[in-house]
Design a protein around this nucleic acid. Structure first.
Lengths: 294, 294
DNA sequence: CGATCTTACGGGATTCGTAAACATA
DNA sequence: TATGTTTACGAATCCCGTAAGATCG
């Protein structure tokens, strides 16, 4: 049994118009072609769908039963393919993207705005989460795309660089070190160190750097918000280390930024995903936009 | 957009087996043919359904979304056509048939038994109803097929004769008229007349015959069951008129039957339906059986 | 006789299978 | 290199459209 969609369309058209001639016009095919299509379908199912009588065509009882079924099949068929096409045409779909807080709060908004403008029917889910959490989310498939520093281990994920960023020191106005044009991490460790919570790229880096220098860990304030970090520094509670991406925000909050020198201070920021070639159209479009605009 | 069933089957087969080679075997087509079928489908929907990588094929996110939809489409498709085929093959379906009581209780059971044996999966609905009700039911499409005397008016229905039957008088044993070999209706009208209820063929005929003879209507007992008619006659409550088809039953109930002479006493019994050429397969099979066996 | 569906037949597109080229682990 | 997929090409099939035939009101 191998009925074709065309044959089913033929049957429905004839049934709905009540005439081969009209139906052939509706389907834009010749009447004989339609006649043969229906005939073949009838041979296939093993019985007549129409009661022929040159004048006034009507459905057989079986045809009567089958018509609504056939109509539903055709509708479902068309709907399914239309949905799929919309998915590819980015007129529908979902994008779930994560970014580390520094990127999420600096460059991402403009990119998202443009994406939204170009693909207004894509549902966007954004998560601004710290590095470790982000990588885990990508690995587990909870988010399709991430933007963060290049991870230490690329196991189970792929990384595509966008640009480089470096860590900077955040100091309150009037801090003695503010006079210097460039600092070393060691110089910051006499103050209370304010960072984002564990798992953030900043914290990962500072912890590693402190260990590398053989220094004792300083007092650390953990904040969950970059604005909190900036505000605490501005209030003189301590000094901080953040990606340079956050410079603007820190300045706005009344804190100063100074570059830090040291090994591994500069790292690549890029797109993290499970498999680049397996991204959905929606994610692929976001990836392209990021590569283009960032 | 004009995807074919084959293409959808190709997609599902590849997705389910995870390999073009395996899928081509399952579908009994060559691997290149399958490759092209999927490729065409992908071009049609406007994007990739699979992520190709010679080694270890996997679904794209869109393909992942589409697979269950496609599986359901194919299943619905197959089911619909399988149902239709079963209908034509008389492995499924409904037959609704009505017969006048005399036929329903005499010859119909054997025919039904044979029908049931040959088409055990057809649901049979039998109604034994009086003539007028039967014709109305056929006209309204409540039953597809009827067996009864030839109706006066064939408007909206078709009649196909099976055999002829005549009305007979039913007398209690020892009734004076029982000595005669043949009666006239007039001779019965001195007794109480027992018939089936209004609308039955017997009643229609007797009423008409009595009116035609210019006689006053006799006392009439209306029964709803043929057995009641027979039993009442046997008990000496009166005489009855029934189709000769009922003779056996009347004898079994202890009543005697004598032919009646008179105009229109013999009438054709046959199949009544709305349109002969519009019968369902199940009804057509019953019609053939009736024509063959009755 | 006229409207409508079916059959007949030639042309064109699609699809198939075989064989070769190609890509990745 | 070996496995599995895609491209190339000749052949068969299927489907369509035009034209002629059949059927019923």
């Amino acid at each position: 049994m191998n009925a074709s969609v065309k044959q089913l369309r033929a049957f429905v058209a004839v049934a709905e118009t009540g005439s081969f001639a009209e139906a052939s016009e509706r389907l834009s095919i010749s009447q004989p072609a339609l006649s043969i299509a229906v005939k073949k379908l009838e041979e296939m199912v093993g019985g007549a769908l129409f009661v022929r009588s040159t004048r006034a065509l009507c459905l057989s009882p079986e045809g009567e039963l089958f018509l609504p079924v056939a109509q539903r099949l055709l509708r479902d068929w068309s709907d399914a393919f239309a949905d799929l096409q919309r998915l590819y045409a980015l007129q529908q779909g979902k994008l779930s993207i994560a970014a580390m807080p520094s990127f999420a709060s600096s460059r991402l908004p403009a990119v998202l705005a443009e994406y939204r403008e170009r693909f207004p029917n894509i549902d966007i889910a954004v998560r601004d989460i710290v590095m470790e959490e982000l990588i885990d989310s990508v690995r587990r498939g909870r988010v399709e795309l991430g933007v963060a520093f290049e991870p230490e281990s690329a196991e189970g994920i792929e990384f595509e660089p966008l640009f480089s960023d470096r860590f900077v020191a955040v100091l309150p106005a009037g801090h003695p070190l503010a006079a210097r044009r460039q600092l070393r991490l060691g110089q910051l460790l006499n103050d209370v160190l304010i960072t984002l919570n564990r798992g953030s790229s900043t914290r990962l880096w500072t912890d590693a750097a402190i260990a590398r220098e053989g220094r004792e860990p300083p007092s650390i304030f953990e904040a969950f918000q970059l604005t909190t970090v900036g505000a605490m520094v501005a209030a003189g509670l301590g000094v901080a280390v953040v990606p340079a991406l956050c410079r603007e925000q820190m300045l706005q909050l009344g804190a100063l930024c100074r570059p830090i020198a040291g090994p591994g201070i500069e790292r690549r920021v890029g797109i993290i995903c499970r498999r680049r070639h397996q991204l959905s159209s929606a994610a692929m479009a976001m990836r392209s936009l990021l590569l283009e605009r960032v």
